[in-house]
């Protein structure tokens, strides 16, 4: 049964990929990318990698589609024809794929209990992590404690991505973004060809886009708190089930981005200012690194949470809680920063 699901999902995946490659409308490509992420998330679920699936769904389908769309607002919506034939690319793909397949020939069989993966390091994680680290979710133990330093690295990667974007594109100053969302690219073309009697009706929409989106606003107001609440749940539930700082940060950010989409970016920027976000991003990294440093001052190694409390397990718990918080804050701040930078880059709709 599982293999049928696998086959179906994989064939959908292939179809989506081919469609993405063929399609010239970037908007459609982005939508297909979202589908692609969703499919791969489903595949991860069938492989029992629920945490990965969760992250993929939150980041791939959620945030990255929005970010891509906002980036799309800055460019053309159709891909230009490539100047040369795509056969070279095909050759590249075929060669690389062939090498990869060749490489898998001597791999231990998938799920083989005797393969080194299942006999070496993982054994200790499974056997000892509940009384060495604590959380029932082993993924969290590995992620936050055994290999907590890698996670710090990943957090900084996200931080870097955010500030790289700001460094390259730059925040506009407050006065510079008077332009609102939902304003059509140019009035002339979109209205000239339409009948005049309808034109008047929509005149108000241009100036106050939110006013006629009453339903959206109300639903948004209903759901945004729930989204934020859910984000907090994911944040603090990471010890027990799928979840943790990365996913929580993304979900929290998506709540804010939703707010910005419905109520206008400028309003959102008054609620959560770019400066505040910058400080939050910094704070996220500092919380993580700070925990490590505190561990050092208390006599342990960097990120050795055992020393944080009298009882090692409590120490681990506290440490993981804090660093997940740091990750969450950082991811949230960076995601929103990215959205702001794209959204305010140029006149246009998101």
């Amino acid at each position: 049964m599982e293999s049928v699901v696998d086959i179906v999902l994989l064939s959908f995946l292939c179809i989506t990929v081919v469609a993405i490659v063929y399609i010239r409308k970037l908007f459609c490509a982005i939508m297909l990318l979202g589908i692609f992420s969703l499919l791969s998330a489903s595949l991860f679920v069938t492989m029992d990698a629920v945490d990965v699936a969760f992250t993929e769904a939150a980041v791939g389908t959620g945030i990255s589609s929005i970010l891509l769309l906002s980036a799309l607002a800055l460019t053309h919506t159709r891909e230009q024809r490539p100047p040369h034939q795509p056969y070279i690319a095909l050759l590249v793909v075929v060669v690389t794929g062939a090498v990869l397949i060749y490489g898998t020939m001597d791999l231990p069989r998938f799920g083989d209990p005797n393969s080194p993966i299942h006999r070496h390091v993982a054994v200790r994680y499974i056997a000892d992590s509940p009384h060495e680290v604590g959380p029932p979710n082993i993924v969290t133990s590995v992620l936050a404690s055994y290999r907590g330093y890698d996670t710090l690295g990943e957090t900084v990667v996200i931080f870097t991505a955010g500030i790289a974007l700001v460094g390259l594109l730059g925040f506009r100053r407050r006065q510079e973004f008077k332009v609102r969302l939902y304003q059509p690219m140019d009035k002339k073309t979109s209205y000239a060809e339409n009948s005049t009697e309808d034109g008047d009706e929509f005149e108000d929409n241009i100036k106050l886009p939110g006013a006629n989106h009453m339903v959206l606003r109300i639903v948004g107001k209903m759901f945004i708190p729930l989204i934020l609440l859910f984000a907090l749940y994911v944040q603090f539930h990471g010890d027990y089930g799928p979840g943790g700082g990365f996913q929580a940060g993304v979900i929290f950010a998506s709540g804010i981005i939703l707010y910005a989409l419905i109520f206008d970016v400028e309003t959102a920027m008054r609620v959560i200012t770019p400066k505040g976000l910058r400080l939050l991003a910094v704070a996220g990294v500092f919380i993580y690194g700070g925990v490590g440093l505190v561990c050092m001052f208390l006599g342990g190694n960097f990120l050795d949470y055992n020393v944080l409390s009298a009882h090692p397990l409590h120490g681990q718990h506290l440490g993981i809680f804090l660093i997940e918080l740091g990750v969450g804050i950082n991811v949230f701040a960076i995601m929103v920063i990215m959205f702001y930078t794209f959204a305010n880059r140029k006149r246009g709709s998101v």
Binding site: L152, V156, T160, R278, A281, V285, N301, F302
Partner: peptide
Amino acid sequence: MSHLPILQVIIPLLAAPLCIVFN
């Protein structure tokens, strides 16, 4: 226990966010 190896990396790593605290 010497913390030198970790300090080597962690100093610039944590100084990086510090740079953008004050604009």
